[in-house]
């Protein structure tokens, strides 16, 4: 636990260092208003990464989140076009439900048919994108077709921060509560850290994985509406490849790809780290190639950290094995 806490401290330090470096070249970047904008811009990543974190904790992976986001977004946009008077609350419920159903499909395939999660979600990722094409015939839905209430919701400012940012904070708080204080949250850690022991303890590992996928899907659905309404456009390839950013945020945030290790705080910091890089590099005039390379390097450094902490763990286990023989 102390190891993880220090990892979060390191990440916080890295983000601060990054901000200081940027500030030396472009002081305007660290102005409160701009930092808030960066936070707001990173909100969808944070929401998706929290869902992904739960899935990775249970030794799975969800590659379909970006496709889920795009399909949910398209459904919301088409509903808005068909029924412009539909309140945003209804749209939100539809978005959450759509996302949850898509997550449940992933979860059921993993749980009941025992197909490896990477295969399941690679498949559903393509299927969900395909369904968008079927629904929209490949056509775009643009801002002028959407109602002002639909597109205005995520941008509405409360205390200077748009609703989008507030929702990210709300989701973070909710996930923190679930992970720390509910039997379900505990079961995610147990199922991923030692599935055998979890089974003996009375935890249904398959059900825990199913629930994780439903959470991930639901959050992807929420992000779907927010994304489409914020950018006021919906099309087949929206947020293409974004699932990799989501996984990267988790990994940078210290979520072990082997399962069972990771925290809400770490995941949020991982997402913010990527968010700062993404927003700062164009400002300080670094070419897009370097942006990708820096993101990639950050992931490698994070993974190295993970495997190093894993190695310490291994040594302790070996010592007891040695004693046992």
């Amino acid at each position: 636990m102390t190891m993880l806490k220090s990892r979060e401290a390191i990440l916080t330090g890295a983000i601060l260092l990054l901000l200081i470096l940027i500030a030396t070249r472009f002081p305007g970047f660290v102005a409160p208003a701009n930092l808030m904008a960066v936070f707001n811009d990173t909100s969808p990543l944070m929401i998706l990464a929290l869902g992904q974190m739960v899935v990775i904790l249970t030794r799975c992976i969800d590659l379909s989140v970006a496709a889920n986001l795009a399909l949910t977004g398209m459904i919301c946009a088409m509903l808005n076009v068909a029924f412009p008077g539909l309140p945003v609350a209804v749209i939100l419920i539809v978005a959450l439900a759509c996302g949850a159903v898509m997550g449940a499909v992933n979860g059921l395939l993993v749980w009941k048919l025992a197909i490896p999660p990477i295969v399941v979600t690679l498949g559903t990722m393509t299927i969900y994108r395909g369904i968008i094409f079927l629904l929209s015939d490949g056509a775009w839905i643009n801002s002028h077709e959407m109602s002002p209430a639909f597109t205005g919701f995520p941008r509405t400012q409360i205390l200077g921060l748009p609703v989008l940012g507030w929702l990210a904070i709300l989701v973070t708080a909710g996930m923190a509560l679930i992970m720390a204080r509910t039997p379900m949250g505990r079961s995610f850690y147990a199922a991923g850290n030692n599935p055998h022991a979890a089974v003996y303890t009375g935890i249904d590992v398959g059900r825990a994985q199913f629930r994780a996928f439903v959470i991930s899907g639901t959050l992807a659905g929420l992000a779907g509406y927010l994304w489409i309404s914020r950018y006021a456009v919906a099309y087949v390839d929206i947020a293409g490849g974004f699932e990799l950013d989501v996984v990267a945020a988790c990994v940078i945030g210290g979520v072990s790809i082997a399962g069972g290790v990771g925290t809400v705080l770490g995941t949020i910091l991982g997402a913010l780290f990527l968010g700062v890089i993404k927003n700062a590099l164009p400002v300080v005039d670094i070419s897009p190639f370097w942006q990708l390379a820096i993101s990639g390097a950050a992931i490698l450094v994070a993974v190295t950290f993970n495997s190093r902490s894993g190695r310490t763990r291994g040594r302790i286990i070996l010592k007891s094995v040695e004693k046992a023989t």
Binding site: M1, Y189, A190, N193, N194, H196, A197, A198, V199, Y200, G260, V261, R313, I317, S320, V321
Partner: peptide, 12 residues
């Protein structure tokens, strides 16, 4: 097999 089936090592 207590190592494998017993405790969740990363939990307090």
């Amino acid at each position: 097999d207590r190592g494998k089936q017993g405790a969740i090592l990363d939990m307090p």
